[in-house]
């Protein structure tokens, strides 16, 4: 009375096609998506670089000069150029998405998405100008 159990490999109901690991390189929108997601790596990179620059101020003139000299090396300039492009991409995609996350209504009227994106870009300009003024007047 023994029935050999027979399993059906790849049962139609259970079978799932496996996604290739690099699924996101096939379409432009996917590359855009993954690039946007990877900007966070460069945000963290610059946050840490800034922190190390600040740390030299606790360690004296020599540490400060050495860090500034490192910033002039081709490696640092290349890394920072890539980081700048990626962080600028982060800013642009962030501000363009903001109207979708932020729906403001005044009474019956919804503030148009373009106005919210515009306020974000204006804020970007104000922050950039203020930081530039602080650094250039130091």
């Amino acid at each position: 009375m023994s029935h050999p159990t027979r399993y059906r490999k790849y049962h139609p109901k259970l079978y799932r096609t496996r996604m290739p690991i690099f699924w996101w390189v096939r379409k432009w929108t996917h590359i855009h998506f993954i690039t946007r997601e990877l900007t966070s790596v460069f945000v963290a990179f610059y946050a840490i670089e800034l922190l190390f620059l600040l740390r030299t101020l606790t360690r004296g003139q020599e540490a400060y000069d050495a860090f500034l000299a490192w910033l002039q090396t081709p490696l640092a300039l290349a890394l920072n150029t890539i980081a700048f492009l990626m962080i600028a991409f982060h800013s642009i995609t962030w501000f363009n998405l903001a109207p979708k996350a932020l729906v403001i209504r005044v009474g019956e009227l919804r503030i148009p998405p373009v106005a919210i994106a515009g306020m974000n870009y204006a804020g970007w300009a104000v922050f950039s100008a203020a930081l530039a003024w602080l650094i250039l007047s130091a």
Binding site: V43, Y46, S91, W94
Partner: peptide, 20 residues
């Protein structure tokens, strides 16, 4: 995301590119 989008491009450009 918001604070870094507002501040980091200017800081990076000035301190890590324009200055060196």
């Amino acid at each position: 995301g918001a604070l870094s989008a507002l501040c980091l491009p200017a800081l990076l450009f000035l301190l890590a590119l324009a200055m060196p």
